[in-house]
Write a protein that binds this DNA or RNA. Structure first.
Length: 137
DNA sequence: GCCAACGTTGGC
DNA sequence: GCCAACGTTGGC
């Protein structure tokens, strides 16, 4: 199973909002970046990802699961943009901050560390396992 | 609030 | 197809 990382500003769409959606989930709309879109196209039902708060907190706060594969983004008429639906699975007992990731040599290659502007990122199996551990899971 | 990094756009 | 200009993102 592939793993991912979704970034959002908590002011706009935070973990609490995601949790409030429950099992129904919510489309991860508003992505206007080809790399991010391509990552979403590659997602399969049941894939899991981290939910990251940018700007405020700058930490991974929870785990989400893809509950609908890529479909047209309903917030635009532009057919280029697609998005997946995700639902909250569980919070991390201990949020893992960007600083924590930077301080961990094994995460030096992480996209979050190297290309923080990409809003939907792939996460390797090793990174996934390590961050879950760091988060107290 | 600033600014560096990055991606996209559009003129040529 | 190149590249300068512009807009956006996100860490600090």
């Amino acid at each position: 199973m592939a793993h991912w990382l979704f970034k959002s500003e908590p002011d706009t769409w935070g973990w609490d909002a995601q949790v409030a959606k429950g099992e129904a989930g919510e489309q991860w709309d508003g992505v206007r970046n080809y790399q991010a879109r391509n990552n979403m196209r590659a997602m399969k039902l049941g894939d899991q990802g981290f939910f990251y708060h940018s700007n405020q907190g700058k930490e991974i706060v929870g785990i989400v699961e893809v509950c609908s594969e890529a479909h047209p983004d309903s917030t635009t008429d532009d057919p280029r943009w697609e998005c997946v639906d995700i639902k909250a699975v569980k919070p991390l007992p201990t949020p893992v901050s960007l600083d924590d990731c930077k301080a961990e040599p094994e995460l030096a290659e992480m996209v979050l560390v190297n290309n923080s502007r990409l809003s939907v990122q792939p996460v390797s199996d090793a990174e996934w396992a390590l961050i879950c551990k760091m988060g107290g899971l």
